[in-house]
């Protein structure tokens, strides 16, 4: 059987046909949709990770410059009163 080289035009045409067939196959078998879903899922997870990485350390950071938090066995005493008392006691020692 005689073999001959494809012309550039023939090669391009065959390439485009093959490309179209592969695209069609991807579409018909749901591969494209699956890929898009995967990208969307990974993108969402990556975004959540970035948000968590920024937000979580902030949640644990001091609420005030002078102290982080105060709690007490009595209701109605302002946090600042205890903080001032803790500071004043130190200076009296």
């Amino acid at each position: 059987m005689e073999q001959r080289r494809l012309t550039d035009n023939e090669f391009d045409q065959l390439w485009q046909e093959a490309s179209a067939r592969s695209q069609g196959l991807r579409l018909s078998e749901g591969y494209g949709q699956w890929q898009r879903n995967r990208r969307r899922t990974l993108g969402t997870l990556a975004m959540l990770t970035v948000v968590a990485a920024v937000a979580l350390p902030l949640l644990g950071s001091p609420r005030s410059d002078v102290y982080e938090h105060v709690y007490c066995n009595r209701i109605g005493v302002a946090d600042s009163q205890w903080v001032t008392l803790a500071e004043d006691l130190l200076l009296e020692a």
């Binding site: 001091p62 102290y67 982080e68 105060v70 007490c72 066995n73 009595r74 205890w82 803790a86 006691l89």
Partner: peptide, 24 residues
């Protein structure tokens, strides 16, 4: 008979904080 408070992370300087329990 005691008012008890806990102050967390009282700032002593830029890099050091301390926890305090107060008994009144």
């Amino acid at each position: 008979e005691l008012k008890v408070a806990k102050v967390s992370g009282l700032k002593l300087c830029d890099t050091v904080r301390i926890d305090v329990v107060l008994l009144q």
